[in-house]
Computed example of a mutant assay.
Amino acid sequence: MITPPGDHAWFAASALAEAYSFIFVRGVTPERLVTRMGDRAEDFSWMTLDESIRTGDHRPEFVAVTTVGDWAFVAQHNSWLGAYDRFLAPLSAGTRLVSLYRLGIKGLEDFRWMEDGETRFGFWAQDGYSEDVPEELAETMREIDRGYGEREYDLYRGPGLVLIERLTGITLTPQLLEGPAYLSGAIPDLP
């Protein structure tokens, strides 16, 4: 059964909720992911996500990366990197990547599931969902459709987080955003 939208209501009050990118990459460490992004881990610092947000001063190239199980998790405030395919595709080389981007002021939400550089499924703010729903998400999408009916999708309040959970096994919680140390710093020029 799908997680009801109220179960993610805590996130709507988060400092990240109105403008963020979340990126999950399976099977890599934060240090290795920073290298994939084109930088050196030794040029980054460990800090809390809140410290990282303050230090990054709303720069889209400033990333905060931690480990969650078998996944590297990137959390960014006020960044569009979670919707930038030219950035995401190389990060997914040889593995799975799942991302969710939101810019509340414009009502934009983008979701990606990539495998080895190829988009398997996505939701694009102005275009809707991928035409073909992979079998792995078919039941989840039917549940989302039943649960949300004709209402406008608001991915950061539920469905996007449900899709992340289904594809990664990770439930986004306040403890995940507040607890672990994040390897943080500015990545070099974006592609």
Rank of each mutant, 00 (worst) to 15 (best):
R166V: 12
G117D: 11
A75V: 14
F44Q: 00
E165I: 02
Y101S: 04
R86A: 15
D110G: 02
A15G: 12
E135K: 10
A181C: 01
E18Q: 14
G94D: 11
E136N: 05
T48C: 03
R151Y: 10
F111P: 04
F24Y: 07
A72N: 08
E150M: 09
G6F: 02
P191D: 05
G107D: 12
T29I: 01
V25I: 14
R112A: 06
D116Q: 01
Q126D: 15
R166A: 15
D7P: 00
A64E: 01
I187T: 13
G69L: 05
L81W: 05
V98I: 14
F121R: 07
L176C: 04
G82N: 08
L183Y: 03
Y156K: 07
F87K: 02
M37T: 06
I164E: 05
R142L: 10
I144F: 03
D70C: 03
G185C: 09
P4N: 12
I2V: 14
T140H: 04
P180G: 02
E178V: 06
R96Y: 07
P90E: 04
H77C: 10
W113I: 03
I144W: 05
E118M: 12
V63G: 05
H58Q: 13
E165D: 09
S45T: 14
A17E: 09
R151M: 08
Y101M: 12
E178M: 09
A13G: 11
M47T: 09
